[in-house]
């Protein structure tokens, strides 16, 4: 199989971000700033060029456990210090191959960045202001495809 190369993602393109429904309050499905968080140094998303929202929801199994938020690449890049990098996973031990995988960097302060009090709260507020609706809401029926 050919190696997947990292590609430049255009600003108008979409990313799909998976969030566990179990982290939501019963009876309150609203998005909140805490939804946006890094794991192992970045926020993992899928690029719409290689994945649908439904595929992103199903990628880890048991899709009913997840809801999906749609992010617009250019609107992420508008936020200070944030970047979007296509980072397909292929032949990585312990990880399924995923050509759509895209990393969003910048929620946490990186090395070499000046300290800024309230920085992470500012960035999460900005993300929430731009992306506070679900693409696939919690408890939505699972797409049979």
């Amino acid at each position: 199989m050919d190696l997947w190369l990292a590609e430049e993602i255009p600003d108008p393109d979409l990313l799909f971000y998976r969030f566990p429904v179990g982290n939501l309050r019963s009876g309150d499905d609203r998005v909140f700033p805490g939804v946006f968080a890094e794991n192992k140094g970045s926020m993992s998303t899928d690029w719409c060029k290689y994945s649908s929202a439904a595929q992103t929801r199903s990628r880890q199994g048991r899709p009913a456990r997840f809801a999906i938020i749609r992010l617009v690449v250019g609107q992420i890049r508008e936020i200070d210090d944030m970047s979007v990098v296509h980072s397909p996973t292929q032949n990585v031990a312990g990880q399924p191959d995923n050509r759509a995988h895209t990393s969003v960097f910048g929620i946490e302060a990186g090395v070499g960045r000046p300290a800024e009090l309230g920085r992470k709260e500012r960035i999460r507020t900005e993300l929430y202001r731009r992306f506070n609706t679900w693409e696939i809401p919690p408890h939505a029926p699972v797409d049979p495809a």
Binding site: E116, L117, G118, E121, R122
Partner: peptide
């Protein structure tokens, strides 16, 4: 605790 607030013509942040 860390905070950030925004309203028209005003931003606050700190810990």
């Amino acid at each position: 605790a860390n905070y950030f607030g925004r309203k028209p013509k005003s931003e606050i942040s700190g810990r």
